[in-house]
């Protein structure tokens, strides 16, 4: 074991890998969508315990609240972050000059 040997060494590898086949990617995405649908209906299957004391935060008990919140949070996050780029983004060597 030596910290100079092996470093950044590229090798040849011509094998076909799992996601080289677009069909496998399709399958993965479809399976994922099915999980999402199943999970939201899992809401109906059991009695839910609220995290907050009774009446403090009733929205929490609504059907699909957590799923909806997670989805909307991430869309807003990405849209806001994309806008931030307009103000904050500089070239890679900005501080080097």
């Amino acid at each position: 074991m030596n910290d100079t040997q092996d470093k950044h060494e590229t090798i040849k590898d011509e094998r076909e890998h799992m996601f080289d086949n677009p069909k496998n990617v399709q399958r993965l995405i479809r399976g994922f969508f099915v999980c999402c649908v199943l999970l939201i209906f899992a809401d109906l299957l059991f009695h839910r315990h609220l995290s907050f004391a009774e009446g403090v935060m009733p929205v929490e008990g609504w059907f699909g609240f957590y799923a909806f919140y997670g989805f909307v949070a991430c869309v807003l996050l990405v849209l806001a972050a994309t806008q931030m780029r307009k103000v904050l983004m500089r070239s890679e060597d900005y501080y080097d000059g």
Partner: peptide, 21 residues
Amino acid sequence: TTHVVLQLQVLFYSALAFTVL
């Protein structure tokens, strides 16, 4: 059950947002 299912919902729908975007 509540905690596990709700946590999975948050996570899967965050991932759904990533996938859709």
